[in-house]
Design a protein around this nucleic acid. Sequence first.
DNA 1: ATCACTTTGTGAAAATTTTCTCAATCATAT
DNA 2: ATATGATTGAGAAAATTTTCACAAAGTGAT
Lengths: 210, 210
Amino acid sequence: MERGDISQAVISRLPRYHRFLSELKDQGIERISSADLSRLMHVTASQIRQDLNNFGGFGQQGYGYNVDYLHEEIGHILGLDKRHNLIIVGAGNLGQALANYVNFDRRGFHTKGLFDSDPHMQGVMVRNMPVRPMSELEDFIKEYSIDIAVLTIPKDAAVEVADRLIRCGIQGIWNFAHIDLDVPENVRVENVHLSDSLMKLSYNLRDLEG
Amino acid sequence: MERGDISQAVISRLPRYHRFLSELKDQGIERISSADLSRLMHVTASQIRQDLNNFGGFGQQGYGYNVDYLHEEIGHILGLDKRHNLIIVGAGNLGQALANYVNFDRRGFHTKGLFDSDPHMQGVMVRNMPVRPMSELEDFIKEYSIDIAVLTIPKDAAVEVADRLIRCGIQGIWNFAHIDLDVPENVRVENVHLSDSLMKLSYNLRDLEG
DNA sequence: ATCACTTTGTGAAAATTTTCTCAATCATAT
DNA sequence: ATATGATTGAGAAAATTTTCACAAAGTGAT
């Protein structure tokens, strides 16, 4: 199972496979062929097989794929069997929404703390966690072995906070701020630019309106 | 300026160009060459020029691109000069976060109403708007000429609500539910699958951990 | 055990996307 | 006015991604 040479396009599709396989599992379906999955997901069967074969042969001729097994394997590829400790920086609505999102825990992403620079937010309880002041950031990261930080703060603050996080060795940043963060090679950033997404919708709406 | 034959890969990059041009505008920079922009954005100058030339020649030899003009043109391509009326279905933390996000208004996306099925949420004020019961959905859409619905509800509810929305002629759905919605051809869906994004981060973290 | 059928994995072809290259054009300084 | 230098737009080449096609391998019924 080679890694590093696999395109981000393939990686981007893996969570979707994982999601559909979860659904199939929930429905008690034990096996599925690439052809059936392709009809379900509206992608070609070829692409499914090609994508999966980047990581190994998970299927069986004449049978198809075992749903449970494939679900688990993709989870493994995505690293969902690893445990991650998160903090959320920015305890506004978005930060609180993410803190309350139970499914992340199930996938091994455990939120350990929330931070906010607003003095009025200090001590407010969110999902049994007190909102902490930014001054405690560095110590907390060390004490709780935090490896991922979620940034739900305005862009200027995000740049500053990212610097602090990087200096104390954070590995991953899940960035919701409206800016692309420049980070060293040994830090991974995943951006969620909600505005970009809305603009894409806007573009695709244009030809409906004449 | 042909449309419809432009790949989604190109479309996906336009909001990012738009964002960087906004930054340049804010910094008072009047002109930029594709080479300078490429250094800033970490993409090739070729790609920038090729992307833009899908829609027309916005630059000038020996000069580069006028920041203001290009910003406006991309905004136009993305349809940001059109007005859209939104409703948000699901007034939890995420729905409230989006309702309070001021920048959407600036881009022509005006939130007109919030809906929630929880009786305890009825009448709660979010950004000067009362949370409404789901029973009022259809009438409200007609009365306020709503063209986009934002779904910040669980997946089972999302499927049901999407059906209702489609029946009363919604044009766009911005879907935050953890499921791919099947919609007719004349409806545009833009999915924001936060879990997928987190899984991508998870994958990219793997090779940092040995 | 055999046979007809299904379905994967994979090499090759096709399609698409990205990068390269450079003539044409414009800016700017003198 | 002219010359020098900068930079685009676009055609061609290269690289990448997706799809095709089919041999090989397994299923399941008889």
